[in-house]
């Protein structure tokens, strides 16, 4: 029973970072109807910039701030240079374009910072907490990540559903023509969507980097898990992304703990298929699946 608690808490710690990356994917989808495969690439790139800032200033916080600013700028650049012009293409064209951006960002990062993995500092000591007199696989840092994630979800939910900006963004994404007629500057809204997603991705990157260590490719696996979580949760739902991001982390931890690491991806695939079979539009989706 003690080990169940350990696997459970460890799974939540793993899941929180998956959830963070899934949040960024959902943001781009909500604001531009594009699945952004370059998201992990943008997060990786801005984390390198943040690490450079940390190394210069010695301050984790300044690194985070620099990373967030860089994330916003990079999101804007990707939007203006690639995604806005690419809107003429269909879904597969857009996926391939973001994929091209991912490859380009990874190679660029390897050129600038080399491929060797680097340690990224934590603001809080990375040491397991003691609960009921025993050390559990949940560190103070994991709790910090979890809190940041909750704050981000609350903030974003309010921003997107309660503010005029958020409503305009949703309108631009769902029906650009109508939005334009009602006076929304659609192109600006799409750009803002990419900027916000880039900033959230940057936060995710800076928080993941101490766990995974930072190299051009270490975030790759999070793309698969975050995308899976976002899809199961319903691509429109921030809460769904977070819930299933943590769920994915839990399943991976429990399967690895109780059976074998090699079973984890298989169980994840089966659960993905089952979920989509019963909830084709995601568990937290607001729309009913088309019945045809």
């Amino acid at each position: 029973m003690g080990s169940f608690l350990d696997y459970f808490l460890g799974g939540i710690a793993n899941g929180a970072v998956i959830a963070l990356m899934a949040l960024a994917l959902v943001l781009v989808w909500r604001s531009t109807r594009v699945v952004n495969f370059a998201q992990v690439g943008q997060a990786m790139f801005t984390s390198f910039i943040a690490l450079t800032a940390v190394n210069i200033t010695g301050s984790w916080l300044i690194g985070l701030i620099v990373g967030i600013i860089a994330g916003g700028i990079l999101g804007f650049i990707v939007h203006v240079l690639v995604m806005r012009p690419v809107r003429r293409a269909d879904a597969s064209g857009a996926i391939i374009a973001t994929f091209g951006v991912l490859i380009a960002l990874q190679s660029l990062a390897a050129m600038i910072w080399t491929a060797e993995p680097r340690a990224y500092p934590t603001p809080i000591e990375y040491a397991g907490l003691t609960i009921f007199g025993r050390v559990v696989p949940l560190t103070g840092y994991d709790v910090f990540v979890f809190i940041v994630m909750i704050v981000l979800v609350l903030f974003l939910t309010i921003l997107l559903t309660k503010t005029k900006l958020g409503l305009s963004m949703r309108a631009s994404a769902f029906n650009p023509e109508v939005a334009r007629l009602s006076g929304v500057r659609v192109s600006r809204m799409l750009a803002i969507g990419w900027i916000i997603a880039g900033m959230v991705g940057a936060v995710a990157g800076v928080l993941i980097a101490p766990i995974s260590s930072l190299s051009p490719n270490t975030f790759d696996i999070f793309l698969v898990f975050a995308f899976t979580a976002a899809v199961i949760g319903g691509l429109d739902s921030l809460v769904g992304a977070v819930a299933f991001g943590i769920g994915t982390g839990l399943i991976l931890s429990l399967v690895t703990g109780y059976s074998d690491a090699s079973n984890a991806p298989i169980v994840a695939l089966i659960l993905l298929a089952l979920n989509l079979w019963f909830k084709p539009d995601g568990a937290f989706s607001h729309h009913k699946a088309r019945s045809v």
């Binding site: 080990s3 696997y7 710690a13 766990i211 995974s212 975030f219 690491a261």
Partner: peptide, 18 residues
């Protein structure tokens, strides 16, 4: 205990616990 190369980035919490 064992790990898959793709799990390195996620940490070895479950394995170390075991």
């Amino acid at each position: 205990a064992s790990y898959l190369p793709t799990q390195i980035a996620q940490g070895f919490g479950a394995q170390v616990t075991r």
